[in-house]
Structure formats: C-alpha cells, structure tokens
Simulated assay, not measured.
Amino acid sequence: MSDSEKKIMEYIWAAGHPVTTSEIIKNLPEAAEWKQNTVITFLTRLIRKKILKATRVGKANQYEPCITEEEYRNFEIKQFIKDVHKGSILGFISSLCDNGDITMEDIESLMKRFKK
C-alpha cells in the first residue's frame, strides 16, 4: 500500500462507517490538495488490492474496509520479515538485539508470552 493509500485507509478505519469520496476530501488534509480523480484512483487501487470495497448508494459510492487495521499491520509485519529477514523471526529479533533496539524489559515480556 502506498503512503497516500495508507492515509486514506487510516481515515476510513478511524471513521468506523462507510465513507464517500467527498467525505475523504473534506476530512483528510492531504486529500484537499489532491484532485477528486486522484482520490478515486487511490480508492480504485485499494479495491483491486481487496483492502476496500465500494457500494453504490444513490449517485455516490460508499467505501468500507475489507480488512481491519490490525489485519493489515499483521500482513505488513509478516511481509517485512519475509522480505528483509528471509522469513526468519529469529533473524528479526537478533537484529533488534544486535542494534540495541530491544530492552531487557522487552525480552522479559517476550519470555512471559512464550511461557503461556
């Protein structure tokens, strides 16, 4: 998902109800700088990626997510580990340890989760 598509999805997820193109343009600061066709292009891409669905209501489409924000984040994390760490979760965690990005508190929390 591109940064622009992500901004649109973050707005839609936060809205918690189906939204129209005009609502997106009115409520998303970045969208005010985009032409309506640009917003529609982003929405079309999101539909093709099966992240968003559109329902025709009167003269306007209403857009709502096909996946939750959490489901999207989980997908991105798995994809990152696959692409950057060749699918190795251990490689990912080792990288965090080697760079000092993980604290002892983090490790203790992980250990507690692993014991469950």
Rank of each mutant, 00 (worst) to 15 (best):
S2C: 04
S4E: 00
S4Q: 06
E5R: 04
E5K: 09
K7H: 06
K7A: 02
I8G: 00
M9E: 00
Y11C: 01
W13Q: 02
W13S: 04
A14M: 09
A15G: 01
A15R: 08
G16K: 09
H17Y: 14
P18L: 09
V19D: 00
T20R: 12
T21V: 15
S22P: 03
I24D: 00
I25L: 04
K26C: 04
N27S: 12
L28V: 11
L28D: 01
P29M: 07
P29V: 08
P29K: 12
E30F: 08
A31Q: 02
E33H: 13
E33L: 11
K35V: 11
F42M: 01
F42C: 00
T44C: 05
T44S: 10
R45F: 05
L46R: 00
I47R: 11
R48Y: 14
R48P: 01
K49D: 02
K49Q: 11
K50P: 05
K50L: 07
I51R: 06
L52W: 03
R56W: 02
V57F: 11
G58L: 07
N61V: 04
Q62P: 03
Y63C: 02
Y63P: 01
C66I: 10
I67W: 02
T68K: 00
T68F: 00
E69V: 07
E69F: 06
E69H: 09
Y72M: 03
N74V: 10
F75L: 13
F75C: 04
Q79L: 10
Q79A: 10
K82M: 10
D83A: 11
V84S: 14
V84I: 15
H85G: 07
H85L: 05
H85Y: 15
K86R: 15
S88C: 05
S88L: 09
G91V: 07
G91L: 03
F92N: 03
I93A: 04
I93R: 02
S94H: 13
S94E: 14
S95C: 09
S95V: 02
L96W: 06
L96Q: 10
C97A: 15
C97F: 14
D98T: 14
N99R: 13
N99E: 13
G100A: 10
D101Q: 13
I102Y: 08
I102L: 15
T103R: 08
T103Y: 04
M104F: 15
E105M: 10
D106N: 14
I107P: 09
E108C: 11
E108D: 15
E108L: 15
S109A: 14
S109K: 13
L110I: 14
L110T: 08
R113F: 12
K115L: 14
K116S: 11
